[in-house]
Structure formats: structure tokens, C-alpha cells
């Protein structure tokens, strides 16, 4: 996967497949300690202990009509390359929490990518789910919560408009981060 925003989209798809209703994404960037931590937490069906043991295996998937399950394994590859790793905590019928961390300054650290586009696509295509994002960068914080949007009371066009307005703020937030992180 090319960047962090695509990994996030892919990991959130797992939560959706697991019938989660609430999905919480936390992105914590701590420049001083040189670490990016991404947490994706859902209230989906969870994994058994046996499943958990092989979750990173690229040849394990619970999906039908396919033989590989690459998502988690690719995420871990990206993390390991940047001196990080991925932890999974999961409980059957309770939910799953995936935490990936990376060393920011590592030359093999993948870029953040278009996080705002990832939010747009996953929120718009899953109107029956609640999404929460909290993105923290040093002292700054951006929060996004679909509970504000009343998805059931609006049509797709006005829903899109609400999401996009909110994501404009996120884009500005991301510009500041990128400028500060990479000096662009």
C-alpha cells in the first residue's frame, strides 16, 4: 500500500465486513517522540483466539471466493519497515482494535496520503455506520463525528455536502501538519 490513508481505508473495510456499527479512528502524531500511532477500533464481530493468531498470515482470510488476506499483513510490513509494528486486540462479539505505529523520521516511513479523501469515501459509502475520527498533532486536534450529520434525515447530496464542509477543515489541519512535518 502506497500510503497510510489507503491502509486506513483497507483496515476500516475489515470492520465493515465484521458488521461493526461504530468505528473509531485515532491518529496520534507525536513529533517529539518521533512516533505516529494509528488506532482503529470497532464493535464488530471480533476474532477468536485462533483467528487472532493467524490474522497477519497473508494466506489467511475468512472471505469466500478468495485465497489471500493481505490487508493486515501489508499494514504490518509497512510498520516494520519504519521500525514500528501492529498490535491487535479482539474479543468475539465485542469488537476489534488494531493499533499500528511507525517511526516518523524513518526513511522508509510511508507518507500520510490523502486522509481527507479516505474519510470522505468511507463515510459516504457507509451511511448506516457511525464514524469518529480524532487526529492529534502535537498540541492540535481535529475531531470528526458522523453523529453530527443526521445521515438518516438527509439525502445523499446534502449528506455529501455536510461531510465535505467538515473535511475542508480537516484539509487545512493536514496542510499545517505536512508543512511542519516535512517542511513543505
Amino acid at each position: 500500500m502506497e500510503d497510510l490513508s489507503l491502509h486506513i481505508l483497507d483496515i476500516v473495510e475489515n470492520s465493515i465486513k465484521a458488521n461493526a456499527k461504530n468505528i473509531e479512528i485515532k491518529i496520534l502524531i507525536d513529533k517529539k517522540n518521533d512516533i505516529i500511532k494509528v488506532t482503529i477500533k470497532d464493535d464488530g464481530k471480533g476474532m477468536t483466539e485462533d483467528e487472532l493468531k493467524i490474522a497477519f498470515d497473508p494466506f489467511y482470510t475468512s472471505g469466500k471466493n478468495k485465497k489471500t488476506g493481505l490487508g493486515l499483513s501489508l499494514l504490518r510490513d509497512s510498520a516494520l519497515k519504519a521500525e514500528g509494528n501492529v498490535d491487535i486486540v479482539s474479543e468475539i462479539n465485542k469488537g476489534t482494535e488494531i493499533q499500528a505505529y511507525f517511526k516518523i523520521s524513518h526513511p522508509d516511513m510511508i507518507p500520510l496520503g490523502d486522509l481527507s479523501k479516505t474519510m470522505l469515501v468511507m463515510v459516504a459509502a457507509n451511511r448506516d455506520k457511525q464514524f469518529r475520527l480524532s487526529h492529534i498533532y502535537n498540541g492540535l486536534e481535529f475531531n470528526f463525528d458522523t453523529a453530527e450529520f443526521k445521515a438518516h434525515k438527509t439525502d445523499i447530496v446534502s449528506y455529501l455536502k455536510q461531510i465535505k464542509d467538515k473535511l475542508e477543515e480537516y484539509k487545512n489541519f493536514l496542510e499545517i501538519i505536512k508543512g511542519d512535518l516535512y517542511g513543505i
Binding site: L6, L9, D10, K66, L120, V121
Partner: peptide, 15 residues
Amino acid sequence: MGTCGIAAGARNIMA
């Protein structure tokens, strides 16, 4: 939006 789909550009198609 499987992993392959995302890697191949599914996000932009949806956008």
C-alpha cells in the same frame, strides 16, 4: 474495496 481494489485505485473511483 478489497485490498487489491484499494491498491489499484478504488478510492478515486468512488470519489
